[in-house]
Nucleic acid binder design. Structure first.
Lengths: 209, 209
DNA sequence: TATAATTACTGATTTATATCAACACGATGG
DNA sequence: CCATCGTGTTGATATAAATCAGTAATTATA
């Protein structure tokens, strides 16, 4: 295996011997952009650990509307719930860029977790992070309206906002590109953002959410 | 203390000695209906374990709209994320009925978790349950429209649907009572539910979500 | 450089759902 | 027994955002 587990956050402070054991039932995979990692409804067998790239997790509703639940980045665990609960994956995971993942045999990992407090602690931390993220999605999507969501997004992504395509931002925020365009126009008209000068008035933005 | 921790799901399979230790920094509280357990923004110090009753967790948006994130029932843990992450509570918890809670000093509990695999495992299970619930909220609220949400609710609550007030169901589903009334009328008109006969055509309902 | 493809903008229309308003019905309490 | 309160129903209207449609601007490609 090319990737060494000990360099991965999830396995920090876990002893060499345990790591070696885990490496025995872990495989490394490359998934190229736009390919599916797993489908909604698939039976889980592996825990996925995203090493590199971005994975998009989404659901398709009955009327074929795609709702993005989350974009996963480096070092994030994917599919714990399905694995822990022995239920089919509730959403589809697709490579949003070229991606490197580790597939860990979950049944075997479970035993190791149980006998290794450090690993258990790391998994716990990862679960808590995920809860935090989900709670954030809920409060962002259910509590804020579109303009507030956009304001919050720009505020939190001031560094790369001008380098991100609007259609991507629209997808992330779950609004239509047209709506986003109109909201951005509003912020431009109010001198809160300036695309040419790459200027963002964060103090003004914060008023909007 | 009146309540014995060993009778609580979270402490199942945890040895007597550990339980006794935990009892030393756990206190028991009664909160009567409509009173606040903690406010959004409060600094967390205790982990709450709901022993009896229902606690409503909600956020109030900038335009004073209340969004219910979750109703907690018996044996559920409240506030793990805030405690684990050392961040202020992201939402307000209010007693929805008369309620009994345990307040557990989190800093002290943390040490115990670390040295007790069974407890760690139980906490992990509780975290996974919470993730599952949050994912469910997201898919219900973001992917389904109102009619689909109502159909899903009736399908999943066939046993107590006719005993629950519509205004409560509306709040749980995050739709207005008027909208719920109109949707129920639709299902009645299509002979999918019948209030007098307390009849629910679950097979027909499932088509709607 | 010219052409095609993608992305962004803008106006008009549609849609789902909330809100407002009026009213009906049953339960509760003086 | 009537008045009041909580709940449910129904219609009319308002609102946020999606969709549709056309065009402009930008980026990629031949």
């Amino acid at each position: 295996m090319r990737i060494h587990l000990k360099n991965i956050v999830l396995f920090q402070n876990v002893d060499e011997e345990t790591i070696k054991k885990i490496e025995h039932f872990t495989t490394e995979h490359k998934v190229s952009k736009e390919n599916i990692v797993f489908y909604e409804g698939d039976e889980p067998k592996y825990l996925y650990l995203l090493v590199k790239g971005v994975i998009k997790l989404y659901k398709t509703s009955s009327n074929h509307k795609e709702v993005v639940l989350k974009y996963f980045h480096d070092n994030e665990l994917i599919g714990e719930v399905a694995n822990f609960e022995g239920m089919p994956y509730p959403a589809t995971a697709k490579a949003y860029s070229d991606v490197e993942v580790l597939k860990i045999d979950f049944e075997k990992l479970k035993d190791v977790i149980f006998s290794n407090p450090n690993l258990a602690f790391n998994i716990q931390t990862s679960l808590v992070k995920k809860i935090k993220n989900l709670e954030n999605i809920i409060s962002t999507n259910l509590v804020l309206d579109s303009k507030e969501r956009v304001a919050k997004y720009i505020y939190n992504h001031a560094d790369d906002f001008f380098e991100t395509k609007n259609i991507e931002i629209a997808e992330i925020l779950g609004v239509s590109p047209e709506t986003l365009s109109r909201i951005l126009k509003f912020f431009k008209d109010h001198d809160i953002i300036n695309v040419k000068k790459k200027y963002i008035d964060r103090d003004a933005l914060i008023q909007y959410f």
